[in-house]
Amino acid sequence: MKRQPDEYSNDFSHWKMQEIIRLAEIQLDSQHQEWISSQNRACSIIGWIIPIMATSVAVAHYTGYETAGWVLVTAEMLSVLCALYSISPRKWMREDKESLDLEKLKELPKENFLANVIETYKNQIFINKNTLNQIDSWITASLLFLVFAPFFAAAFHLALHSFPTAHSSLEGKIKNHSSEVHYYINVHL
């Protein structure tokens, strides 16, 4: 959609500035669509994790794989937190020409007006790009926690059960400490 010539398009430099503005507006629209897509991806991840986490809680509570189940739940909670953080409010710039305070900018000479609009759009594009990079990083972290959760759980389970003496002595210490705490509470309280 090309713009019609207006009072600022008297020469090539004005035409060039108008084209830069038009392209910047297109890029801002594209960034906005990417932002919406990232939000949808994060919500989809959360939607997948909830039933997976319910299954992991059941594994942790009702099977002999308690340790692995709770490691799964922990990794999945980290995945949910990363996805939630990625959709949390952030600094986002999408201002249309109407909200650029055009009346104030029009008081400037023609060259300064267009240059200020271009500079404003350039700053908005830069801020949005950084925001999108942060969102993508958090979504990637969320996916990594989700994908590697079963491997963490299996490794932790194998590590605990590969050394049965260490595992049983640790359980014994926990039970012993627990009984000492109960004794202290019953005697002193």
Rank of each mutant, 00 (worst) to 15 (best):
N112S: 15
T74N: 04
D101Y: 07
A54L: 13
A68T: 02
G47T: 05
R41F: 00
A68R: 02
N112Y: 05
E107P: 02
K106H: 11
T74L: 09
Y62W: 14
V59H: 04
S86Y: 00
A60N: 06
S56V: 09
E98M: 07
F113Q: 12
Q124S: 12
M53E: 13
V117G: 03
I125Q: 08
Y121F: 15
T120Y: 09
S37I: 03
H61N: 12
M77S: 09
V117R: 04
H14W: 15
T55G: 10
E107S: 12
K91M: 02
M93P: 00
Y65C: 04
I49C: 05
A54S: 13
N116T: 12
I87K: 02
W70L: 08
W35Q: 13
K91G: 03
T131E: 07
A115K: 13
R41S: 10
F126Q: 10
I21Y: 07
S44D: 07
W48E: 09
K91T: 05
L81Q: 02
A83Y: 00
D11W: 15
V80G: 01
I26E: 14
T120M: 09
I139T: 07
E119M: 10
V71M: 06
M53K: 09
D96H: 09
M17G: 11
S30V: 05
L23P: 02
V117M: 11
T63Y: 07
